[in-house]
């Protein structure tokens, strides 16, 4: 391992785009590399800096209207960074971070502001604010269900040929036809999910890290991870979610089986919304 070059992570504008605690995504990525013996360098890029263009992985978070317009202008001023995001590096963009990479977005007064024009998508102001838990099925292979918390009023329309990151099973997502959530290109993973999304979905974190390092990553076993996911993925989510790890494991296995069966059946025609039904037999605690 010695001499291995560090993975460089660029945390973009955490001073502007971190209202919804998406900075945790950087923590998750860095720790998952360190725990596997891969060295990490984190560049925290604030508004007053000239952004480095040589990072392997960039991370953008969510923020409020004014912050978002500011971030979009900042990106437009740094065209070299935009080129790096579009062509060289991998990028995770969350919520406002996703919107600013598109063509334009509307603020709360309905005014349009130009985005960085890296992604073929536009965001109108939706008819209502989407707030709550979301479950999607991720388009990336082997990632499975994504869980997160959305809190936005953007209705994001993807251009032709641009694919969503996942299909919404529960929650709102992009709030446009097709029940898509987020956006997925060869270089960019965009999503509305907070949580932070990579803390909730380690498989998505590892998919990004795999794309960056090009190496197989051995699994990590974090004691509370299964319960965090099971609490949100359970088709009969209960409050309070007092779940033991054993029950969490069972529950996840059940969901996986159920989902994969359904997706095999329905995938070509788009995915039906979760009707909160259990997979046939559903003995809970019996």
């Amino acid at each position: 391992m010695s001499g291995e070059s560090a993975v460089r992570i660029g945390a973009l504008l955490p001073d502007v785009l971190n209202t919804y605690s998406d900075g945790g995504n950087v923590t998750v990525l860095a720790q998952r590399l360190r725990w596997r013996g891969v060295p990490v360098e984190i560049s925290t890029v604030t508004v007053d800096m000239v952004p480095p263009v040589g990072c392997d992985l960039y991370v953008l978070g969510g923020g409020e209207d004014a912050a978002q317009v500011f971030a979009a202008d900042w990106l437009r001023r740094h065209r070299h960074l935009c080129a790096a995001l579009a062509e060289n590096a991998m990028t995770l963009a969350v919520c406002a971070g996703l919107q600013v990479l598109g063509g334009w977005m509307e603020d709360s007064h309905g005014r349009r502001h130009a985005g960085a024009e890296i992604l073929d998508l536009t965001t109108e102001r939706g008819c209502r604010r989407a707030v709550g838990e979301v479950v999607t099925w991720c388009a990336l292979p082997d990632v499975g269900a994504l869980t997160g918390f959305e809190n936005h009023r953007g209705a994001t329309a993807l251009g032709p040929g641009t694919a969503p990151l996942g299909r919404v099973l529960r929650g709102t997502g992009n709030e446009t036809a097709g029940r898509g959530e987020g956006v997925l290109t060869d270089h960019i993973v965009g999503t509305y999910l907070h949580g932070p999304v990579l803390a909730r979905n380690p498989a998505l974190a590892d998919a990004l890290l795999h794309a960056v390092t090009g190496r197989a990553l051995q699994p990590l076993d974090l004691p509370d991870q299964a319960a965090v996911r099971a609490d949100r993925l359970s088709p009969r989510r209960r409050w309070p979610g007092l779940l033991t790890p054993e029950r969490a494991g069972e529950s996840i296995a059940r969901i996986r089986e159920h989902r994969s069966r359904r997706y095999r059946e329905e995938a070509p025609h788009g995915i039906a919304r979760d009707r909160r039904q259990g997979p046939g037999r559903h003995d809970d605690g019996g």
């Binding site: 803390a199 974090l222 319960a227 309070p240 007092l242």
Partner: peptide, 25 residues
């Protein structure tokens, strides 16, 4: 780490490398 969201705070502590146990009650 405890409470109804014991796992959430437990996971956060794991990433902060704070050794802990998790018990919702």
């Amino acid at each position: 780490a405890s409470g109804e969201q014991a796992a959430d705070i437990g996971l956060r502590l794991s990433y902060a490398e704070v050794d802990h146990r998790t018990e919702p009650d």
